[in-house]
């Protein structure tokens, strides 16, 4: 709680002092994130906290804010066409989190790159990331 409060405070200070334009944040795929950038910058952790319980405790899989979808759009690909972990230094999550010294431990458990394996059985695609276009359509249809 203390850490979160501190993080929010820092984030607020940070965004009020500057628009974060001086940071080199890698661009995501697609035109626009699911929420306006200003809102995502301050509230992404709250969206994730809320929706994780919907999925895990209740089994609702059509949530609007999903960490898997964040990774799908925002993880970069190296010149060797390998996915770079989204929390690696200089990558999407790390740029801001390093600048404000807020540690994230999402990716000690969660995948930091889009799925490269279909799991068991090649026919399986449940859980596999959808294409960015499919994601945009899905979000547009949601309330």
């Amino acid at each position: 709680m203390l850490l979160r409060g501190l993080a929010c405070l820092l984030m607020t200070l940070f965004t009020s002092v500057s628009s974060a334009d001086w940071l080199d944040i890698p661009r995501g795929k697609g035109e626009q994130c699911i929420e306006p950038t200003e809102i995502m910058r301050k509230q992404h952790m709250e969206f994730l906290f809320h929706d994780r319980d919907l999925t895990m405790r209740e089994g609702n899989r059509s949530i609007r804010h999903s960490l898997v979808d964040c990774v799908e759009c925002h993880a970069q690909t190296s010149q060797q066409q390998e996915a770079i972990p989204i929390n690696a230094s200089g990558q999407f999550c790390a740029v801001c989190h390093e600048a404000v010294s807020v540690k994230i431990d999402c990716f000690s458990c969660h995948a930091a790159v889009p799925d490269s394996s279909p799991g068991y059985s090649g026919s399986m695609n449940a859980g596999l990331p959808e294409s960015v276009n499919a994601l945009m359509k899905k979000w547009a249809a949601m309330p």
């Binding site: 990774v71 000690s108 458990c109 969660h110 995948a111 889009p114 799991g119 859980g127 596999l128």
Partner: peptide, 15 residues
Amino acid sequence: NLANQRSWSPRGKGI
């Protein structure tokens, strides 16, 4: 510590 978790199956140390 683990690496290469599936997106649908988060797993980590201490859990």
